[in-house]
Structure formats: C-alpha cells, structure tokens
Design a protein around this nucleic acid. Structure first.
Lengths: 224, 224
DNA sequence: TTTGACACCGAACGAGTGTTCGCTTATACT
DNA sequence: AGTATAAGCGAACACTCGTTCGGTGTCAAA
C-alpha cells in the first residue's frame, strides 16, 4: 500500500475535505462538492483522483450510487482532530426557546420539534444526561448578570422539578414574576438562591412560590 | 419530549436499517433502499416516517440532496456492537493550560502535545476555525469576573497576535504584569479594552505593552 | 525529437434520487 | 354515523449526481 508521500497535493486536499465534510454533515460529499472545495473544475478529474485514492488505500467506492465514498484510512501526519474521521456528529439537543428574567421558563413539554433548532453540544456538557433529556435555552437581556450569564449565552439544562443542594437551577419565582438562574440550597423551611457572581448576595424564597423548571448543566458563550 | 416508546415499529426498523447500512457501507442509504429493506412500498411513506424520526430527534436531514440523512441518535435498548453504531466525537482541541490573571497567557508554541488533553468542542464554538488552529485554556481564579468568566470556565481561542475592533482577546499587559480577557478597540494611538460586564469601565493601554496572544472564540461553563 | 504515462479539462448522458401530488385506509374521538 | 388525524400508497416530476467521451498539456525516458 502506498504511503502518504506519494499522494499529490490535490489528493491530500480531497482527503482533508472528505474528513471535514463527514465531520460536519455525517455523510460523504458528492464529486461536484469535492471539486468545488478543492478547486478542481471537472468532475472527471475529481473522479480520476478519487480512483487514485482508492488505489492508495485511503478510500473505497461504490459505483453508480450517489455519495458512494467511504473513508477507509484518514489522512495522517497532519495536525488535526481525530474526530474528523467519524461518520456522525456528537450529541445534539433542541434549542427550545429564550429565557427572559421576566417570563416563565420555557419547558420541553410545550415545544414542537423543529430539526433546525438542533444545536451541537459535547458529551461533557451533558454531564451524563442523555441528549433526549436535555435541551437548550438562549439568554435574552442582561438581567441575569448575577448568574454570570449574558445576552446570547446558551444554557444547557435537564428537565427536573426538584434540586439537590448546590445544583444550579432555572426557577420561576411566582411571587416575584421572575425567572432566575441560581445555585439552590434548602435551608430549613426556606430556599436560598445563591448567585454565581461571588460578590453578590443570595435571596431567600418561600419554596411554595419557587418553581424549579430545570437543572443547568452547562453554559456556552459564543463570541461571533 | 417524546421517547422511544412512541416510535412505531416501522420507524424502529428504519433506524435499525440506517445503523446497519452505515456500518456496512460508510454512507447512508437512499429512501428507496430504506423502503426495500423495511417493506415500505412508497417513497412518500418512507419520507413521512423519516420526518417523524427527525421530529423525535433520531435523525437529521439535508433536503434536496442524495443520501442527506444523518444518524443523530442511535436506537437504544438494544444490544449492538460499537462498530454497528459509529458513536463519535465532534471536533476536539487541546486544553493546553490554565489562564491566570497574574501570569502570561500560555500559547500553543510552548505546548507539548498530549492526547489526554484533548477536549470535545462543537463546530459552532470554533467559529470557522479549524480544530488544529484552536486551543483551550482553563480559567484559574476569580480575577476575570469583569470578563464574565469564572474559575473553572474553559476558554476556546484561536492563536493570533492582532485583533479587529470588537474581538474578544486574551492579552498580556506587560506594564501591569497582568493577563486579561477583554473586547479590543483601537482608538487613535491607544487601545481600549472593554470588559464583558456591562457595568464595568474599560481600561486604556499603550499598544506597545499590549501583547495579544489569542482571540476568544467561545467560553464553556460546566456546572458539575 | 518522439513516445508514453500521467494529470487535467468541459460537456453530455443517463441513472440515481428526493419531493410533491392526489388519493385511500385505519383509527380515535365525538 | 360523522369527522379529524395519522399512516399509507402509486405515480410523476425534476433535480442530483456519477460515468463516459474526446480531448489538451506536461514531463520523463528512449
């Protein structure tokens, strides 16, 4: 089997694109997509180079079928994540709505599925929760500064209506008509809700008016 | 949120065939292949059931492309080999060190690769950067409250030593012996570094002492 | 200089493939 | 019995997509 050094630069870029497309889409690219991505103007030149990659042992092909390419051996010797060689994505959860300080927390029961709302997460963010148990909300407004979250942040939660001490929870406070994200502590017959910001004071609430809607698993801030 | 038990027998057999075809071929089946394998005579019925599986969170689809199916979540509650279901990561980057307010920012050039330092991220977090261009740092201490980050948060960066206005950057301020994460704005011959916290004041620094080490792409907070 | 292999190209073709339409049947509810 | 919804169906259409054809250009070897 030939090694990497005999591949042309075009062939290496085809393999890189193949890996990238598999990682991003979960299925292989078409010959035309490969051509567009690698600057090859002709489907027959892409076809020629794909056959070279088959001969070199990097790909296998099924003929006369759409996307009939399989990555047999990923490109090596280059600095890249290993995930690129996988067929499918990591876990994804539904972004079911926005969380406002002045409105009740959206919950999964009221949500209608839309594939466009799926967002990528990582296994670590789910903290052991199954993706089907978790969901995401986008923060609106800057009224949750005390939770160290700001407008646009995405909060990953698991649906639950009880909490253990130390859990960060999304709660709707009925007597205040307010949603907040805070650390939950049961103290006697009161609940202490502790802000994430170390310099801010907790609030104490009557558990009867404290409706826990979910436990916060992770927070994501994207700066672009 | 629907669970597995709401799937019909046909839908479960579609998922089983999907997993089998991916394992065997490395690319998804067509609608006609699914129909043949599951005894569904009509492409529109296959289409209908695939849309149901999308709603239930098991698949995602790209429309108007051949084999535009991706297995998002495998069928559970059944014994199968790991090879049968290509559970995988998304992209991963190296967590190369910790970021302290009082020490220079760690940079990739000084890092020795260790596979155990790889962490999962998502494509969205990378904001168009290739995983090989990006790296992560873990925040130590609470001295970056003004950046709305706290101890334990993970910052995803791309290595760069220049910035555009509005970029959040990791900078080492030589005259202050201080690292900070702030929004960068060039104003005349000064640089304004704007905290993320909306109620805090910016600082103005001499660009000569302002060493940009990377651009912040995303921030991840895990609460467990 | 000639030749052969390799890499590349545009265009056309035809098979592969997903979507849409108009319909029927089954089931649950009133 | 009537109605609404879910599930199913066949066919047609239009687009996607891989293969093939007939060619050009480059380079190394004879």
């Amino acid at each position: 089997m030939k090694d990497l050094s005999t591949l042309s630069e075009r062939q290496r870029s085809i393999l890189r694109y193949m890996e990238k497309h598999l990682a991003e889409h979960g299925f292989p690219p078409t010959i035309r997509q490969i051509g567009e991505a690698t600057g090859i103007n002709s489907t027959s030149v892409v076809n020629y180079n794909l056959n070279k990659l088959v001969q070199a042992g990097y790909l296998s092909r099924s003929s006369h079928v759409a996307r009939g390419l399989r990555l047999v051996k990923p490109l090596q010797g280059e600095k890249k994540s290993r995930a690129a060689v996988q067929v499918s994505h990591g876990p994804r959860v539904y972004l079911i709505g926005q969380i406002y300080a002045s409105e009740p927390v959206p919950v999964p029961e009221d949500y209608y599925y839309d594939e466009n709302d799926l967002i990528d997460v990582t296994t670590t963010m789910l903290a052991g929760a199954d993706p089907s148990e978790a969901y995401a909300l986008r923060v609106c407004g800057d009224s949750m500064i005390d939770a160290m979250v700001r407008e646009g942040d995405i909060v990953i939660l698991r649906r639950q209506q009880t909490a253990n001490n130390g859990d960060m929870v999304a709660v709707w406070l009925e007597d205040r008509s307010e949603t907040t994200l805070k650390y939950f502590y049961r103290e006697g017959d009161r609940v202490r809700l502790q802000p994430a910001h170390p310099l801010m004071e907790p609030i104490y609430v009557n558990p009867a008016y404290c409706r826990i809607e979910g436990k916060v698993l992770s927070i994501i801030r994207q700066l672009h």
